[in-house]
Design a protein around this nucleic acid. Sequence first.
DNA 1: CATTTGGATAATGTATCCAATATCACCCCG
DNA 2: CGGGGTGATATTGGATACATTATCCAAATG
Lengths: 226, 226
Amino acid sequence: MSEDAAKEFRRPPTAQAFVLAELRRAIIAGDFLPGEPLRQNTLAERFGVSRVPVREAFKVLESEGQVVYEPHRGHKVASLSLTDLLEVYRLRQLLEAEAAQAAVRNRSDGVLAAMRASARDVEAASAAGDLLKMTEANRRFHFELLAAAQMPRLERIVQVLWDATEAYRFVYYGAEHNRATVEREHAGIVQAYADGDVGLLVALMDEHREHAVDALRTFLEAPSRP
Amino acid sequence: MSEDAAKEFRRPPTAQAFVLAELRRAIIAGDFLPGEPLRQNTLAERFGVSRVPVREAFKVLESEGQVVYEPHRGHKVASLSLTDLLEVYRLRQLLEAEAAQAAVRNRSDGVLAAMRASARDVEAASAAGDLLKMTEANRRFHFELLAAAQMPRLERIVQVLWDATEAYRFVYYGAEHNRATVEREHAGIVQAYADGDVGLLVALMDEHREHAVDALRTFLEAPSRP
DNA sequence: CATTTGGATAATGTATCCAATATCACCCCG
DNA sequence: CGGGGTGATATTGGATACATTATCCAAATG
């Protein structure tokens, strides 16, 4: 018998986990407009569950800042102002610099290989014009490094910050020359990590982030945006 | 039908907010041992509510890292290892340095007065031997400065990190000479803020934190502790 | 004797029902 | 014509009932 197939017994995920994952995906994909109220009944029907798991998923998203909540008035999707975006990226700068140092301290070939593989996935998805896959691979790329830092709280915080702006990554990747920039910068980051050059690594990551912020700044400063 | 818990039942707008606040207080006060399972039924009875608001409060605490969760196995109180404690304080160091700089940039007399008032409250509670009030006033003191930074996400992150170690603050304050150290250091921090000396302010805050870590390190390194 | 298997028990997960609150259209009154 | 109450309705909050899953122990099996 093929034992590893049987060993990987996969239990059906709970409904709340399913709803949570779907809500995350929907928010990231922009299915809801910022500020749009999230009705428990509507979403429960849409997912084929009762309102209870929906409410519990709301609580998680609320404490992550993805949705805002007022008692007896319900939840609505949070909207990011330019100020919010700048704060998120500033915090990421601080935390990812720390993570980069720790990651270089416990540098491993496994992490390096995983980063290279994810970087290739980004390029492939970019070439194929699949922005969703590109954001996924891009996330994997960056969190390989963050996980290598072995600082679980830091990793979790950056995850939440990351998710808060995931919707804007589609915008950034929409332009071909932005995608080219991303791919080029990833290569530099991989090389700096391989060389164990912490100073360069942090500098390149800062630059990488700064390019995204600059592009999004003009987008968010455009009129008729919340 | 909980005794005094039921008395204040309707003070917060919703039961879940009440349960959440009570659970926070109980965890901080050490009513539960680390790793102890939190039974929904037990707590629902204790607070005089049904299991629904209890579960929603669990979801919030879970995403803050105060409790850990496994599907169909329930929630239990998270326990901090020494490594965890060091990570929390390292992250606070990074984030609070950033907050101090921003707070000095928008320095205001109102914040200064509030910090002085909270510092006095700390001293009064310390003199009275009321450790609970002392931790409350201490928290106010530090978050006056953090709020002045006008970075809501940073403030929220530090709040979560702060809460994760609140239980140990009782331990630290247990020794009289630690309390004296805290009061002295608060005075220095206030002065540095009043002078607008960012470098000194950050240095003093680092030192303040480091003293707590040193004291707790020996406590956590003692055998027979998780 | 170690292992496992079956079921009893207790806990969690979900659905449904009821209560409390906000929203809003409408009417009354100034 | 405008402002403020007032009830109908929709939505959220909470309680209860039911379903699913884990845990534990005892008996059967080798």
